[in-house]
Design a protein around this nucleic acid. Structure first.
Length: 313
DNA sequence: AGTAGCACCTGATTGC
DNA sequence: TGCAATCAGGTGCTAC
């Protein structure tokens, strides 16, 4: 589930915990949670051990931690390495309370860190195992990334190269992103979920943004004019910023911050999960339907059905 | 080339 | 009570 505000909440929790820390031990409890690693979990653990984490970065829902590798000078190709993480639907980073605490049943990887002599045990939990960790090279330049602008980040993992700038990225060109959306004939809901057009928006915030903008989720993106496409993007940005202020959206224990705390934005949701309940704007009951395989919530009165071409309901 | 559909998993909830 | 079907916040691959 975690979408941009939740992943950013995790990033902010990790930053003071891991930056400058040295990885002293790596325990992989479930091999399949280490992905895209040629040498598997063995190589993953061997490469990480002894490395020092220099930062925690994010684009959209993708997290990564650049590594200062003490042995980099010995390698034939000293490309900067990063520890990449994607939380999938249920991934979490959690600090274990004690070095000898038995790992949670959903713990997939345990990292033992040394931060100025202090021992920190960081667990990667993931019930559904759609999330993953990997150590991979980073790109030396950001040229050619989706969005086209240069990057203020030191390095971007290869696995993130195809991901567009996210809605809170200061470098995002909103006008270009809006026009990129309008090039697709798919429904605007599906285009909002396309991480190669604009990243960070997931199923919750897509529904919220469209409710706030008053746009029907099935409206073909190509039918929006430039101004309306911009206002959908602005709505997405505003709702994600407000969610971030409240630590993200938590429905259950599957999303919590690094310290185990839940976010409070679920009580501010206007559309997602509110089918059958009255619309806060007009009082009509909200409806739910499946769209592009995802459950979608909207108000039939405030979010007028697309009326392009042939008529319908 | 762009897009729909499915695969990847576990666990909670719903319905018979 | 038991068991099967359904659903869940995401992404990437494959086949049209």
């Amino acid at each position: 589930m975690p979408e941009l505000p939740e992943v950013e909440t995790v990033r902010r929790g990790l930053e003071p915990l891991v930056v400058g820390a040295r990885i002293d031990g790596v325990e992989v409890l479930r091999d399949s949670c280490v992905r895209r690693q040629a040498g598997g979990s063995g190589e993953f653990a061997a490469t990480l051990t002894g490395s020092r984490i220099s930062a925690v970065a994010r684009r959209g829902k993708f997290l990564w931690m650049p590594l200062d590798d003490a042995d980099a000078g010995d390698r034939a190709d000293p490309t900067p390495l990063v520890l990449s993480a994607h939380l999938g639907m249920s991934g979490q980073f959690r600090v274990a309370q004690a070095a000898d605490a038995p790992p949670h049943s959903h713990c997939r990887v345990r990292l033992r860190l040394d931060r100025n002599g202090e021992q920190v045990v960081l667990d990667f939990l993931d019930q559904r195992t759609f999330g993953y960790l990997t150590v991979e090279p980073s790109l030396l330049t950001a040229d050619g990334l989706p969005g086209g602008q240069g990057s203020e980040l030191p390095a971007t993992p290869a696995s993130v190269a195809h991901i567009a700038r996210d809605g809170l990225d200061p470098v995002l060109d909103h006008a270009r992103a809006a026009d990129a959306q309008r090039r697709s004939g798919r429904g605007i809901k599906q285009v909002l979920l396309d991480q190669q057009v604009i990243s960070g928006i997931g199923n919750i915030y897509a529904d919220e943004a469209l409710w706030h903008a008053g746009v029907h989720p099935a409206t073909p993106a190509s039918a929006l004019d430039h101004e309306l496409a911009l206002s959908v993007l602005a709505a997405a940005r505003e709702v994600m910023l407000r969610a971030l202020e409240q630590g993200g959206t938590s429905f259950d224990a599957l999303y919590v911050a690094v310290n185990g705390e839940s976010g409070y934005f679920s009580r501010s949701l206007e559309a997602y999960g509110r089918h059958g309940q009255p619309c806060a704007r007009c009082g009509r009951p909200l409806v739910r339907a499946r769209m592009g395989g995802r459950s979608t919530h909207w108000c039939e009165a405030c979010q007028a059905a697309p009326r392009t071409g042939t008529t319908q309901d």
